[in-house]
């Protein structure tokens, strides 16, 4: 091994003490001072962050949203005052014009076959037009449901 080591030394002459690496001028002279400054900085207790620090992003977003709304809403309101009202008038519907069929939820409809559904709708229209008493209800249930259905559903 000694021979191998000597081979390496021979290749580089007697230069292993030559330091190819350098440092910036005055590096070691100023190192201790720089180190003490860093230690002082690290030992200072961290600044406590206020609630505003954490809410800042949310507040900024809300402010930008409000600003954009202001830019859009105010000119529309000022320059086209009738546009908004006209739109609402167009969108408003007469409550009386809504047919009872149209308010039946789609999910409910899916439980029935087409025939059952049409039958139920026609009965609903009949019931709606007539005065409706407890006797009518009892008759309707007796005609359409068995005792088992009534007990099972209760």
């Amino acid at each position: 091994m000694k021979k191998t080591e000597e081979n390496i030394e021979n290749q580089f002459g007697n230069r292993k003490k030559d330091q190819p690496f350098k440092v910036p001028e005055g590096y070691f002279e100023t190192f201790a001072e720089r180190l003490m400054v860093r230690i002082e900085e690290e030992e200072q207790p961290g600044k406590k962050r206020s609630l505003y620090f954490y809410l800042k992003p949310v507040l900024m977003m809300a402010a930008s949203f409000a600003f954009v709304m202001l830019l859009v809403y105010v000119p529309i309101k000022k320059f086209f005052p009738s546009t908004g009202k006209a739109y609402l008038a167009q969108q408003s519907v007469n409550a009386d014009s809504i047919d009872s069929i149209s308010v039946i939820p789609a999910t409910l409809i899916s439980y029935f076959s087409e025939g059952q559904f049409l039958e139920a709708v026609s009965e609903m229209k009949e019931l709606k037009s007539d005065t409706f008493s407890n006797d009518n209800l009892a008759d309707f249930i007796a005609a359409n449901y068995s005792d088992y259905d009534v007990i099972a559903n209760n």
Binding site: I8, D18, P20, F21
Partner: peptide
């Protein structure tokens, strides 16, 4: 990339 390496080619080879 180290600007503070000032060795010649032979020293660089060894490193």
């Amino acid at each position: 990339s180290d600007v503070y390496f000032e060795g010649d080619e032979i020293q660089k080879k060894l490193q």
